[in-house]
Design a protein around this nucleic acid. Structure first.
Lengths: 138, 138
DNA sequence: CCACCTGTAACTATTTTAATTACAGGTTAA
DNA sequence: TTAACCTGTAATTAAAATAGTTACAGGTGG
């Protein structure tokens, strides 16, 4: 299962986008997410390093670096997920076995298409879309 | 990252399919995968419970329950991956926060499409296709 | 100056994964 | 019928990932 950092990061960005004129301290965000403020600050740090938000040392409040509709879920996913590859592959299969010799290349190709499909779907959604769903009646 | 059981399971099934007339002991498979025989037997057990293969206690050799072209990578994935949900979601976000209150429902929906796209791609590939790639020249 | 905040290191607990040892008991052939 | 070989599975270990927590140096601003 993919870690919950992606979910938390989307939650954080939706919060920031929904209160663009408030300076939300990490404690406030943490109480909405229901976790520890340090967990929030860590994820804020990853989002900052990915260029999605801006923060100021010593001062509450993060702001989005670009419009909510220009921050895709793939951007968020990549910001908080260090692995490039979604599927792990076993290391050093037996090079003297006809299957072992080539399995990794074949698996890489097989998994690549699936991963791309996933990422394409994530790229097709953005924080504005999340906001629209959050605040639509129903 | 998704665990390597999926990769190993595909490797195992490709081996079995490529030697349909041999009874491969778990030691042999393990030496191709480069791991411990018990790891192989555990995964064989999951594949058996999923109905993809048949084995016999005390006797080497697993056989596919159906044609390699009828065993999809999604079948394999589901056999060795207990989690239904691909993306973890943080538990108990604050119900008193307008964002926290609805974020999980919105995230579930957002992630669902991505997961479905991934699974569709896995469902579109099968063990025969893996074999074709393994044994094509190039 | 003081209350408040961030960034980050460090530590802990929990969970997952994989490797490994061990063994009960089935299978087969000499 | 025995010996070699095998499976299924429990139990243990080790390593890695994840998340929660404490602590604190140092920035910010009234």
């Amino acid at each position: 299962m993919i870690n919950s950092r992606v979910a938390v990061a989307i939650h954080i960005l939706a919060l920031i986008a929904s209160k663009p004129h408030d300076d939300l301290p990490s404690d406030y965000i943490a109480s909405s997410v229901n976790t520890n403020p340090v967990v929030i600050r860590r994820i804020l740090g990853m989002l900052r390093k990915a260029g999605l938000i801006q923060t100021q040392v010593g001062k509450a409040g993060a702001s989005l670096s670009r419009s909510p509709s220009d921050i895709t879920l793939l951007n968020v996913y990549r910001a908080v997920e260090p692995d490039e590859e979604l599927f792990a592959v076993h290391e050093n299969p037996n090079p003297h076995c006809p299957v072992g010799k080539r399995i990794n290349a074949v698996l890489d190709e097989a998994f690549h298409g699936a991963q791309s499909a996933l990422e394409k779907k994530l790229a097709g959604q953005n924080i504005q879309g999340i906001m629209d769903h959050l605040f639509s009646e129903g």
